[in-house]
Simulated scan of single mutants.
Amino acid sequence: MGRLIKFLFCLIGMIMIIPSKAVAQAPNAQVYNKFDELVNPSNTGVFNGIGYEEVHRTINENHKFFLTTAFVEGTLYYNGQPYFSQLLKYNVFDDLLLIQAKDRGNLSLFQLIKEKVDGFEINGHYFTNIKSSESEELNGFYEVLAQNGEMQLLKKHARNINQLIKDRVVYYEFKPKEMGYLLKHSDKLYEFNSKREIVKLFPDAEKSIGNYFSSERKTLKINRDQFMVNLFRNINLENSSKE
């Protein structure tokens, strides 16, 4: 029986045992979580990835994962369906999403099938999976820094790898690799990293872009992501005012 059919039975059951006012106020996450509690987690359709084995031993805080090496509770959008309160970890270097399954008290580690991952949210950061047949080299997980309608400002996280040897043991360290940004609009992808490339994307806003780069040099130096987010929002506001 598919997850959707089981979910409908679960929803009917909840309506029968929960007061109508509570049902109306209950968020979707609560309903889905209730469903996953009633069904064996390994049968919900999400735990069909492959086993994951770590091949890089690290010796310091320069690891390959996003923010932390620990699994953190987050939301997974997988094969068209949401899965809330999942233990997730994003391997930035290999661009893989890992999940820790709770099954009968045992913990199992899986590497999710990348093509089925639509997106995920961990530690307040939302990632989308770019799947473009026209620009396959751009495919992968990107953090959504800002969004306005169909337009998204995306950032690719990446790591450089270095090998270390200590006491005849090989270790690895991973340090952030500076990447450009991606603009997604109406399923079209546009790479940019410089002022010239941004002006090329928004020629009507050339003057305001130039003024922004001049006035916000400090922000660009200290927090490049925030600089791009603010610029993106300013450009969108300017374009909206002209429509």
Rank of each mutant, 00 (worst) to 15 (best):
K6H: 09
C10I: 13
I12C: 03
M14N: 10
P19T: 14
K21G: 04
A29G: 12
Y32N: 07
L38M: 15
F47L: 00
G49M: 00
G51W: 04
E54R: 05
E54V: 04
V55K: 15
H56R: 02
H56K: 10
R57F: 10
I59R: 06
N60Y: 05
N62P: 11
K64N: 02
F65I: 13
L67C: 14
Y78Q: 00
P82M: 14
Q86S: 05
L88M: 02
L88E: 02
Y90R: 03
Y90E: 07
N91A: 13
D94R: 07
D95K: 01
L97W: 04
I99H: 00
A101Y: 04
R104W: 07
R104S: 13
L107W: 11
L109D: 07
L109N: 10
Q111M: 07
Q111I: 00
I113A: 12
K114G: 02
E115M: 08
V117M: 09
N123A: 07
N123E: 13
F127Q: 03
F127S: 00
F127A: 10
T128R: 07
S133H: 14
E136V: 11
N139S: 09
N139T: 13
L145I: 01
A146Y: 08
N148E: 15
G149L: 08
A158N: 14
R159E: 12
I161Y: 09
Q163G: 06
L164A: 02
L164M: 10
Y171E: 08
F174D: 07
P176C: 11
M179Y: 05
H185C: 07
S186L: 12
D187C: 01
N193D: 05
V199T: 11
F202H: 14
T219E: 14
R224N: 09
R224S: 10
F227S: 04
R233G: 01
R233K: 11
N236W: 04
N236A: 13
N239T: 10
S241V: 00
